[in-house]
C-alpha cells in the first residue's frame, strides 16, 4: 500500500444481494504473521448490537475480521466500519443476530477444542487461521468474509492506500494524467 493523496469519491450503495450472489461459493495457502492485539470490538461499544452480542463476542468478531483480510497498517476503524451496516441490521434482524452469536460460539468451540482457549486468546495468527479454516464453509464465516471483501476493497475511502485510482472520468481519465508513465522499465 502507498500513501497517494486521497481523492473524493462518490459513496457506494446498493446491489448487496447481487454482489453476494456473485461472490457465493474455494484454496489458499495461509501464512502466519505477528498479530496485533486490539482491545476494541467490531461494533461500536455503545451500539445496541454490541450490547446484545456482548463485549467478548464483539472483540472476537473484530479479531476475526483482521485475521480474514489482514492489513496490519489499516486501522481498526476500517474493519469496524465494514461491519456497521451488519450490526445495524442485526439489531432488528433476529436471524442475523442468531447467525452472529451462534457463529462466534462455534468459532470459540473450535478454538477450545484445538487450543484449550477462546479464539480471542489464541496467541498467533497462524493458530487462529487453523480455527478459521475449520469453519470456513459455514454461512457465518462466508457472510463475514463477503461483507469484509466488499467493505475493505470496495471502500473508496481507502483505495488511495492501495494505490487504486477509482473513478476517473470526471477527472478526464488518464490521457493527460500519466497513463504512459513508468520509470523502471
Amino acid at each position: 500500500m502507498n500513501n497517494d493523496k486521497k481523492v473524493k469519491r462518490p459513496k457506494n450503495s446498493g446491489h448487496r444481494m447481487s454482489r453476494r450472489g456473485f461472490l457465493a461459493g474455494s484454496g489458499a495457502t495461509l501464512v502466519g504473521g505477528a498479530a496485533i492485539f486490539s482491545c476494541t470490538g467490531l461494533f461500536a461499544a455503545n451500539s445496541k448490537a454490541a450490547q446484545k452480542i456482548g463485549e467478548e463476542s464483539n472483540k472476537t468478531l473484530l479479531r476475526m475480521a483482521r485475521d480474514v483480510f489482514p492489513h496490519d497498517d489499516l486501522e481498526d476503524k476500517y474493519y469496524q466500519q465494514v461491519m456497521a451496516p451488519l450490526a445495524k441490521r442485526a439489531e432488528t434482524d433476529p436471524e442475523l443476530m442468531e447467525l452472529l452469536t451462534v457463529g462466534v460460539e462455534a468459532l470459540n468451540q473450535e478454538s477450545r477444542a484445538r487450543y484449550g482457549t477462546a479464539y480471542l486468546r489464541v496467541e498467533t495468527e497462524e493458530e487462529r487461521v487453523v480455527v478459521l479454516k475449520a469453519i470456513e464453509s459455514s454461512a457465518f464465516f462466508q457472510r463475514i468474509k463477503g461483507d469484509l471483501m466488499m467493505g475493505i476493497y470496495n471502500n473508496p475511502e481507502i483505495w488511495a492506500k492501495f494505490g487504486y485510482g477509482g473513478s476517473s472520468w470526471e477527472l478526464g481519465g488518464y490521457i493527460n494524467r500519466g497513463y504512459d508513465e513508468i520509470d523502471w522499465i
Binding site: F22, G32, V68, Q142
Partner: peptide, 18 residues
C-alpha cells in the same frame, strides 16, 4: 482493486494473509 479482490482467489477459500 474491487474485482481483483474477488478474482485473485475466488470462492470460499479466498481470504487470509497471502
Amino acid at each position: 482493486l474491487p474485482f481483483m479482490s474477488a478474482f485473485l482467489n475466488p470462492g470460499k477459500s479466498g481470504w487470509g494473509r497471502e
